[in-house]
Deep mutational scan, measured.
Amino acid sequence: EVTIKANLIFANGSTQTAEFKGTFEKATSEAYAYADTLKKDNGEYTVDVADKGYTLNAKFAG
């Protein structure tokens, strides 16, 4: 089991951190699915991958 950390950075400057656990593939998929649920209210996002894929920095356009 691994933990994927998602740093969510919103256009207004606020941030949120979420963690997803499971296999690498499952946890990564859940992190992206969570970011997708936030698109409606926060706009499209881009992701910078860090820490060999164990940290995802998602920046929302607003």
Rank of each mutant, 00 (worst) to 15 (best):
residue 1 E to L: 14
residue 2 V to L: 06
residue 2 V to M: 04
residue 3 T to N: 06
residue 3 T to S: 07
residue 4 I to L: 05
residue 4 I to Y: 00
residue 4 I to R: 02
residue 5 K to S: 07
residue 5 K to N: 06
residue 6 A to G: 03
residue 7 N to A: 05
residue 7 N to T: 09
residue 7 N to G: 01
residue 8 L to D: 01
residue 8 L to H: 02
residue 8 L to T: 03
residue 8 L to A: 05
residue 9 I to F: 13
residue 10 F to W: 05
residue 10 F to N: 02
residue 11 A to D: 06
residue 12 N to L: 04
residue 13 G to M: 06
residue 13 G to S: 05
residue 15 T to Q: 10
residue 16 Q to P: 01
residue 16 Q to H: 14
residue 17 T to C: 13
residue 17 T to I: 12
residue 17 T to L: 10
residue 18 A to G: 05
residue 18 A to E: 10
residue 19 E to P: 00
residue 19 E to R: 08
residue 20 F to C: 03
residue 20 F to Y: 06
residue 21 K to D: 04
residue 23 T to N: 09
residue 23 T to I: 07
residue 24 F to R: 06
residue 25 E to Y: 07
residue 25 E to S: 09
residue 26 K to S: 14
residue 26 K to E: 13
residue 27 A to W: 02
residue 28 T to E: 05
residue 29 S to L: 14
residue 29 S to D: 10
residue 30 E to C: 12
residue 30 E to K: 08
residue 31 A to M: 08
residue 32 Y to L: 14
residue 33 A to V: 06
residue 33 A to Y: 08
residue 33 A to F: 08
residue 34 Y to V: 03
residue 34 Y to L: 08
residue 34 Y to C: 07
residue 35 A to R: 00
residue 35 A to Q: 02
residue 35 A to M: 15
residue 36 D to W: 00
residue 38 L to Y: 15
residue 38 L to F: 15
residue 38 L to M: 13
residue 38 L to E: 04
residue 40 K to D: 10
residue 41 D to Y: 12
residue 41 D to P: 05
residue 41 D to N: 11
residue 42 N to F: 15
residue 42 N to C: 15
residue 42 N to Y: 15
residue 43 G to K: 01
residue 44 E to H: 10
residue 44 E to M: 09
residue 45 Y to N: 01
residue 46 T to P: 01
residue 46 T to K: 09
residue 47 V to T: 07
residue 47 V to C: 06
residue 47 V to E: 00
residue 49 V to H: 07
residue 50 A to Y: 11
residue 50 A to C: 13
residue 50 A to K: 12
residue 51 D to I: 00
residue 51 D to K: 01
residue 51 D to R: 00
residue 53 G to Q: 03
residue 53 G to N: 04
residue 53 G to D: 06
residue 55 T to W: 05
residue 56 L to T: 03
residue 56 L to E: 04
residue 56 L to V: 09
residue 57 N to G: 02
residue 57 N to A: 03
residue 58 A to P: 01
residue 58 A to K: 01
residue 59 K to I: 14
residue 59 K to L: 11
residue 60 F to K: 00
residue 61 A to Y: 12
residue 61 A to L: 13
residue 62 G to I: 06
